[in-house]
């Protein structure tokens, strides 16, 4: 689904390399996790994949279902099936959550040459998805993320993902700031979307999320590279011993 080859990224504004040769292959139907120390480049990777300004790709390739996406605009990547659940979801005063989601969903459908969803069908769909994430009608009416608690913002990200049904879902620390029950809701939301045609890249600091969303592969990122990959046991090792051993071993 997502193939990253030798990706090098630096900041546009200054000569600072952040990603220094990332290789990653996430096949359809699989869940891959990325762990790694603060500042190792995990969020940068997720932003570069979704097309945010401010970064310059100096080398490497990124393909989504075989198509190079690095030249695409963020909205084109979204329409192609890429989704990022933000580490820090953005508040947008004045734009209603519903209006936002409906505009986004229909824009993606239009871009793919599909029919727009009618207002009634949209309402039915969003009510159903919101209920399963325990997001109430009031939250849907409020401006996007404005005044939402940390956990509410993260659930809202998952609601967007459930509505947009992307093929490649990147979750950047969606578990941070969640209480135990919210974590389970989010994990259930993700698991409900798991299927053979969809892949996940889950960025997290904690093993706990991976108890609920079982990864097929765990990668460790350090200083802008994937330095080690393994099975779910790798996450346990990080949880128990921290990164020191792993980093020493690959150094």
């Amino acid at each position: 689904m997502l193939k990253i080859k030798n990706l090098h990224v630096k900041l546009e504004e200054e000569d600072k390399a952040i990603l220094k040769g990332v290789d990653l292959d996430v096949p359809a139907g699989k869940v891959h996790a990325i762990m790694g120390p603060n500042g190792s480049g995990k969020s940068t990777l997720s932003y570069v994949l979704s097309g945010r300004d401010g970064y310059e790709v100096t080398d490497g390739e990124v393909a989504l279902e075989g198509e190079d996406i690095l030249e695409l605009e963020p909205e084109e990547r979204a329409a192609a099936g890429l989704f990022l659940a933000f580490q820090y979801p953005v508040e947008i005063p004045g734009v209603g959550n519903m209006t936002f989601l409906r505009t986004a969903l229909n824009a993606q459908r239009t871009a793919r040459g599909e029919e727009e969803l009618s207002a009634a069908d949209f309402l039915k769909l969003i009510r159903e998805k919101a209920a399963s994430l325990k997001i109430d009608a009031d939250m849907l009416k409020r401006p996007v993320n404005v005044g939402f608690s940390g956990g509410e913002k993260k659930r809202n990200e998952i609601l967007q993902m459930a509505m947009l049904e992307p093929k490649m879902c990147i979750l950047d620390e969606t578990d941070s700031g969640l209480d135990v029950d919210a974590m389970r809701l989010v994990a259930d939301g993700v698991n409900a979307l798991r299927d053979a045609g969809r892949a996940f890249l889950v960025i997290t600091h904690y093993q706990r999320l991976l108890d609920h969303i079982e990864p097929d592969v765990v990668h460790i990122m350090a200083d802008g590279r994937i330095v080690k990959s393994g099975g779910p046991e790798l996450a346990l090792e990080v949880e128990n011993n921290g990164y020191a051993d792993i980093l020493a071993e690959v150094a």
Partner: peptide, 10 residues
């Protein structure tokens, strides 16, 4: 960027 990342054209 948030809006565009959800598919809303620029």
């Amino acid at each position: 960027f948030y809006l565009r990342s959800r598919g809303v054209p620029d």
